[in-house]
Nucleic acid binder design. Structure first.
Length: 275
DNA sequence: CGTTGAACCTGTTTGC
DNA sequence: TGCAAACAGGTTCAAC
């Protein structure tokens, strides 16, 4: 569910509501959701949340106590969400972790995830660095045009697969890959190493523009997405191709939006996005 | 090494 | 209406 814009929105809400709060309890309803470091959870009670950052599509919470810092990396998968609520029996179904907080306006952070793709990693600094090095590549909002161009030019596969390859470029998923490629007028199956310099430059600028606009809109709510305070996004109203099969092309070329099922589902205009 | 496809899950929508 | 199949925002691992 959550791609870069949604995770950025989640982090923003968490910062305003939880930064500086101290942890009292951590309830784990399903042990297998903690992928690593389950035995380290005893360290956390009374530690303060001192930093909240997005890495790709994940959220990294920094906890500090007595001059040392440890980390929890939260992966949401397709259906995972975080909610901030008063303590009590809310979201009882599909909530797998509850962090009880002190000194925060609302006192509980929930990890809610019906499909249970996605895990939480409990890590010291050394492991955080290792895990991040293995998982993440360039950030779409921090990468330079030169770095991005280098990545695309040496890629022999489909450009959409490259944009969604988290080890190369971290944060873009199926919705935003489709929306970006349509606006940049590039076919999802075009090969990176065959794109013109002009196309690569247009893709780079479109990518940044779409992601920033989506963040400003609070993300896309197709069905379930909510920020931790329960608010929905609005960028879905600006989607031009995602889930728009058979709609007329928004550029007015007269064609209709097509769908390719290979890999993840791609939505595109066969006329405006040439291979 | 790079790419592809199946597997992991539950819930909702679609089609017969 | 009822039931089965298809499909969904992601990541990982095995196989080629």
């Amino acid at each position: 569910m959550p791609e870069l814009p949604e995770v950025e929105v989640i982090c923003g809400k968490l910062r305003t509501q939880m930064l500086g709060a101290s942890l009292e309890t951590c309830w784990v309803g399903r042990a297998d959701i903690i992928r690593e470091g389950r035995e380290e959870l005893g360290w956390y009670p009374s530690a303060r949340i001192t930093d909240i950052q997005r890495r790709g599509k994940t959220i990294v919470l920094t906890f500090s106590r007595a001059g040392t810092s440890r980390y929890q990396l939260i992966e949401l998968g397709m259906t995972g969400l975080l909610f901030i609520t008063p303590p009590g029996p809310s979201y009882t179904k599909h909530t797998h972790i509850r962090w009880g907080l002190k000194d925060a306006p609302a006192q509980e952070l929930l990890y809610w995830n019906p499909r249970r793709f996605g895990r939480v990693y409990v890590l010291n600094e050394e492991r955080l660095v290792e895990v991040c090095a293995r998982r993440f590549g360039l950030d779409p909002l921090r990468v330079s045009g030169q770095e991005f161009g280098g990545l695309v030019r040496k890629s022999r596969g489909r450009i959409k697969s490259l944009m969604m390859d988290q080890r190369k470029l971290s944060g873009i998923g199926n919705i935003y890959a489709n929306e970006i490629l349509f606006r940049a007028r590039i076919h999802p199956h075009a090969r990176g190493d065959r794109l013109s310099g002009h196309s690569v430059d247009r893709l780079f600028r479109t990518m940044r523009r779409v992601l920033r606009e989506a963040i400003a809109c609070g993300g896309s709510t197709i069905r379930d997405f909510r920020a931790p305070d329960g608010s929905a996004g609005a960028f879905q109203q600006r989607h031009l191709v995602y889930n728009k099969t058979a709609h007329g092309c928004p550029l007015g070329c007269g064609m209709t939006i097509s769908r390719i099922m290979t890999d993840r589902t791609s939505y595109y205009c066969p006329s405006c996005q040439q291979a």
